[in-house]
Design a protein around this nucleic acid. Structure first.
Lengths: 298, 298
DNA sequence: CCTCCAACATCGAGTTTTTCGATGGTAATG
DNA sequence: CATTACCATCGAAAAACTCGATGTTGGAGG
């Protein structure tokens, strides 16, 4: 009972003629005969009485007409809905580091949700390793990494930008305003950093190790908002992406230290798996994140 | 979007595995891959995300699951109904000579209708030529002929019997009781016969012509009930099947004339076209007619 | 760390199915 | 009586389907 045969059957039943149906469908007449015969064999009943070269639906045939129309209607409806791509619904799972997640939820996500209330979104946080693993296991639709620049043929980098990094301290730090600092000058200061697993922290430690230096932070915490709050007015130092500290510096609470001999490449990347099916919802969300979350200014 | 592929798709979606679906369906794994790919190509969308050798339905895939289930349900339902052969409904068109029709409607049909109220039946009358033409054009489902014995490879003779024929006159006819009459003795009497087109009348005339005889009836009429009524008490003679006159003879109103030199073969046959689809209703009706209308006693 | 296993994709070969054109028979038409 | 229209059937050609083998990759187990 393949759809093709049912379509042919519908035409034959409507036109009352194998030949006409064949013409209409672009088949040869013998093909139509064969297809109808197939249906008859499969259903083990006669669909048309053939008396004197004219055909006439049997009762069974009439039942099949009704069924065939239902199937066709269902199919048409389905294909139409598919073509329409319906409304923007569905579920999206995005995983980011803490700092990014904070910013997104607080500043941008509310607007997105207002615009697309039917898209349900799950934000969760994780370090780079966890995020990539989730991508590989189709447990996340989309991730944002703050890490060394990732390239992998299985991933699509939807957008990326290099993040300027700074050593940051309280605006009233003893190092504030000092020119041409070296890492060595500050390495023994009390540091507050993101925990080791977090992307750029690993890069940071590695780079220091190359210089045979080591930093023992007094506090490790992923929440960069906590870090910046604690820096202000304290004697602690941190190493953070600009977007985290920019506001504090502008407000006169924090300052950048002028350390010249450490320049770490930290990238912010928006990544999804290359085999990921991009629904319209997901595309919309990706576009949103690309625009809102990535500064075109940098 | 052939049904076969949809079935495979349903299995894959349920089992979450191409391989398992292949096992369950008796396909090879490559076949299942191919079938799903076919669906994806046809619908121009990804149905499963393949990430790390595990598959996961996409939104489109989920929509297709719903559609595929609907189609399958519809198909199952249809096939089940077909197997059930539902109730006895439908329309049957039977054509008979006047005399048979009279008898059927008056005596038997009412009982049949009570037993099978959902079967709608159309009785109509016609002479043999018309009836056979209707059979050939699928305008009648079933006919009963009273005529010479018909054989044609396109027809199915559901039942037949030879009808005894008699010259009949009023019980007080001058020929009543006379032994060993010849056709010649009565050929000039006033005759009342069925009209020429009617089956056995044609045979009757032909047989007389062989003997170089001719009869000019004073009245020709198909309604045999009218004929028998007119015979009684008149000096007219007719030539009729036994089943028409039996009652009158038994009642002492009519008598058979003992004409020995004319013996015409008249057959009552129940015929349908060999290409006719015999619905259960039609079969039931045929069985009914075979039993009720054809005397097993003759 | 290495091997094996489980999955799905892909390819080419073999088989099955589908399609077509030609042919045949029959009834209606002119 | 020739012609047309119609459907069935047949054999050949074309297309589609199916399979097994192979490749790739990640995870599990030793």
């Amino acid at each position: 009972m393949e759809l093709k045969n049912l379509i042919t059957f519908i035409h034959v039943a409507e036109l009352g003629s194998f030949t006409k149906a064949a013409d209409q469908l672009g088949y040869s007449q013998s093909t139509v005969s064969f297809q109808i015969k197939q249906l008859e064999d499969e259903l083990d009943c006669l669909l048309f009485e053939r008396i004197n070269h004219t055909i006439c639906l049997t009762d069974r045939g009439r039942e099949l007409v009704s069924y065939a129309h239902q199937v066709r209607a269902l199919t048409d409806e389905f294909k139409e809905n598919l073509a329409l791509e319906t409304e923007l619904t569905g579920h999206i799972h995005i995983v980011t580091p803490d700092s990014v997640c904070d910013e997104m939820i607080n500043t941008n996500y509310i607007a997105f949700h207002k615009k697309h209330p039917a898209i349900s979104i799950c934000f969760s946080t994780g370090d780079s390793g966890v995020m990539l693993h989730m991508l590989d296991h189709n447990e996340a639709d989309l991730i944002i990494t703050l890490d060394q620049r990732i390239y992998n043929k299985d991933y699509v980098i939807a957008k990326e930008e290099r993040l300027p990094m700074h050593f940051v301290a309280s605006a009233d730090s003893e190092f504030a305003g000092r020119k041409d600092l070296s890492v060595k000058d500050i390495v023994n200061q009390p540091f507050i950093l993101t925990e080791y697993g977090q992307g750029y922290r690993r890069v940071f430690d590695k780079e220091l190790a190359k210089k045979s230096l080591e930093i023992h932070p007094v506090l490790e915490i992923g929440r960069t908002d906590v870090i910046t709050k604690m820096l202000a007015g304290s004697n602690m130092i941190s190493y953070l992406p600009d977007f985290v500290t920019r506001q504090g510096v502008a407000a006169g609470e924090l300052c950048y230290l002028d350390v010249k001999d450490l320049d770490i490449e930290v990238w912010k990347q928006l990544i999804y798996h290359k085999n990921k099916w991009l629904s319209k919802s997901l595309k919309t969300f990706i576009d949103y994140v690309k625009e809102k979350e990535f500064s075109s200014a940098v």
